[in-house]
Amino acid sequence: MDYQYPISHDWTTEEVISVINFYEAIERVYEKGVQKSELLAAYRKFKEVVPGKADEKKLGDQFEKVSGYSLYQAIKKMKNTQEDTMIKL
């Protein structure tokens, strides 16, 4: 990883950790796969920090620009997966 995660300087250390854990889960979706339950837990923590759709989209666009990984596509796949299986894109 040769890029910086998009974060807000207004977040607490705990909030930054939650968001970074979510970004790392998204990276794993693309690189080797991740269990739906793990991604869902990371997404829920992320949504506690970033509850608004507009802010989520903005961060998702910034993350995709630096990493090439789409939050939207990973979450869409997670939501469309019925069982707790491996999610990989």
Rank of each mutant, 00 (worst) to 15 (best):
E38I: 15
D55W: 10
I75R: 07
K77D: 09
F46L: 08
A42R: 03
V34E: 07
S67Y: 05
Y43K: 13
L59S: 08
L39V: 08
D55Q: 15
M78K: 06
R44K: 12
E31P: 02
D61A: 15
K32S: 14
F22R: 09
E83T: 10
Q35Y: 15
Q62K: 12
V16W: 02
Y23G: 01
K77M: 12
P51E: 10
P51I: 10
A54K: 15
K36A: 13
Y30S: 05
E83M: 07
K57I: 11
E31Y: 11
K36H: 02
Y72G: 06
A42K: 05
I75E: 01
A41L: 14
V19N: 00
M78I: 02
I75Q: 03
G68S: 05
T85A: 10
R44N: 07
L39Q: 06
T85I: 08
T85Q: 13
V66I: 09
Y69M: 12
I75H: 04
K57P: 00
S37V: 15
Y69F: 15
K79Y: 08
V49H: 00
G52I: 07
F63Q: 08
K32H: 14
K77Y: 07
Q62P: 02
K36T: 11
V16F: 06
K76V: 11
I20K: 04
I20L: 11
S67E: 00
I26D: 01
P51M: 05
Y43E: 07
Y43C: 09
D61C: 10
G52R: 14
L71G: 12
E48I: 14
T81C: 02
Y69H: 15
Y23M: 11
K79F: 05
E64T: 00
K79C: 00
